[in-house]
């Protein structure tokens, strides 16, 4: 069953690059996008539950809430029952700061950390993570 994807990134070019890249890779289904954390939280928590938990590619450096704050809020909403869905999140960022990697590791929802641009090896790793 193809895995739905949501790309959360304020940079339109980067959303476009990921969408194009994944669209020609087998195994991934519908690719949605959100321009920032707010848009992602409201559409994701508010929309109908999909059959398969989606893969969320989350940028870190975004206006208003950064990627970590968005995940924090998502975990809070799932924990309080305000969001009835779960997801598998991987960070996709141009940062390779050790602090950011450390922070990412602390979240239950976050399964991976990748630096832009996403290449074929990264996609293989994501597939392995999804099937694990």
């Amino acid at each position: 069953m193809p895995i739905p994807v949501i790309v959360v990134d304020d940079e339109p070019t980067d959303r476009y690059i990921v969408k194009r890249k994944l669209s020609r890779t087998p195994g991934f289904g519908e690719i949605g996008e959100a321009r920032d954390g707010e848009e992602f939280l409201s559409s994701y928590c508010g929309g109908p539950a999909p059959d398969t938990p989606p893969l969320v590619l989350m940028d870190i450096n975004m206006p208003r809430r950064d990627g970590f704050q968005v995940i924090e809020e998502l975990e809070r909403r799932i924990g309080s029952g305000a969001c009835h869905r779960t997801a598998m999140v991987v960070m996709l960022t141009s940062s390779d700061r050790p602090e950011d990697k450390e922070r990412a590791r602390a979240f239950n929802l976050v399964k991976g950390f990748f630096t832009k641009p996403l290449d074929d090896a990264d996609i293989d790793t994501i597939r392995e993570l999804m099937s694990a």
């Binding site: 940079e11 690059i17 450096n61 141009s94 940062s95 641009p117 996403l118």
Partner: peptide, 15 residues
């Protein structure tokens, strides 16, 4: 980070 971001975008587009 912020000077790398545009380079990552360029690299992505080139790929």
């Amino acid at each position: 980070h912020d000077l790398k971001a545009p380079l990552a975008s360029v690299s992505g587009l080139m790929r």
